[in-house]
Amino acid sequence: MKQGIHPEYRPVVFRDQSAGYAFLTRSTVTSERTVQWEDGHVYPVVDVDVSSASHPFYTGRMRTLDTAGRVERFKRRYGND
């Protein structure tokens, strides 16, 4: 790798406040805010709108559409008799 052209890769806490969920990972994202993590170290924190703890697909609250009913209704309305 070339020296001096890559952003700093360091531990960062991502926090989903709507779900009360946070996780520590490594990233190049920057943040002025910090938080003290469970291990006692202080890390930059980034607040996110959606995470796996609040996304409907991962929580099982996803709504499924009745596509078969829509197709049948379309065929009834516009299909050849």
Score class of each variant (00 low, 15 high):
47 D>G: 00
2 K>D: 03
28 T>R: 14
81 D>K: 15
20 G>K: 06
17 Q>V: 10
55 H>N: 15
62 M>Y: 14
69 G>W: 03
40 G>Q: 08
54 S>A: 00
52 S>H: 11
1 M>I: 03
12 V>Y: 12
6 H>W: 11
18 S>N: 06
15 R>V: 07
9 Y>D: 06
11 P>T: 04
45 V>S: 08
33 R>I: 00
64 T>F: 12
27 S>F: 12
50 V>K: 07
64 T>M: 13
16 D>G: 08
50 V>P: 00
29 V>F: 14
20 G>D: 01
10 R>Q: 14
24 L>H: 06
45 V>K: 11
29 V>L: 15
59 T>F: 04
41 H>M: 13
55 H>Y: 13
62 M>T: 02
11 P>K: 06
80 N>V: 13
17 Q>N: 10
57 F>H: 10
5 I>A: 09
23 F>W: 15
25 T>D: 06
43 Y>I: 10
36 Q>D: 04
78 Y>K: 09
78 Y>D: 00
28 T>L: 10
51 S>T: 11
12 V>E: 07
42 V>H: 01
43 Y>C: 08
75 K>I: 11
46 V>M: 05
20 G>M: 02
73 R>N: 08
72 E>G: 01
37 W>S: 12
46 V>D: 09
59 T>I: 09
52 S>L: 09
36 Q>P: 01
71 V>R: 12
6 H>E: 14
81 D>T: 09
17 Q>T: 07
20 G>H: 03
17 Q>K: 12
34 T>R: 13
56 P>I: 06
35 V>T: 13
64 T>A: 06
66 D>R: 05
60 G>Q: 11
22 A>C: 01
22 A>E: 03
38 E>V: 14
46 V>N: 09
25 T>M: 10
2 K>R: 05
45 V>H: 09
68 A>F: 01
16 D>Q: 06
46 V>W: 06
24 L>D: 02
45 V>R: 09
10 R>F: 07
76 R>N: 04
44 P>I: 01
8 E>F: 13
73 R>C: 02
19 A>F: 04
76 R>H: 05
48 V>Y: 08
52 S>M: 12
61 R>C: 08
81 D>L: 12
18 S>G: 01
27 S>I: 11
30 T>I: 14
16 D>S: 09
71 V>I: 11
36 Q>N: 05
20 G>T: 01
57 F>W: 10
79 G>R: 09
62 M>E: 14
58 Y>R: 07
75 K>P: 00
68 A>S: 06
27 S>Q: 13
65 L>D: 04
55 H>W: 12
9 Y>M: 11
55 H>D: 15
32 E>L: 05
59 T>A: 04
38 E>G: 09
3 Q>D: 08
15 R>T: 04
28 T>S: 15
71 V>H: 00
70 R>A: 12
67 T>H: 13
60 G>R: 13
33 R>M: 04
13 V>T: 11
35 V>N: 00
45 V>L: 11
59 T>K: 09
2 K>E: 11
42 V>R: 00
40 G>A: 05
19 A>Y: 01
65 L>W: 00
24 L>G: 08
61 R>V: 11
2 K>I: 03
47 D>N: 05
46 V>I: 11
13 V>I: 15
13 V>F: 00
79 G>V: 00
57 F>K: 13
11 P>R: 04
56 P>K: 04
22 A>D: 00
39 D>F: 08
48 V>P: 10
45 V>Y: 05
24 L>K: 15
11 P>D: 01
57 F>T: 07
51 S>A: 07
12 V>H: 12
67 T>E: 10
75 K>N: 05
8 E>P: 06
58 Y>H: 08
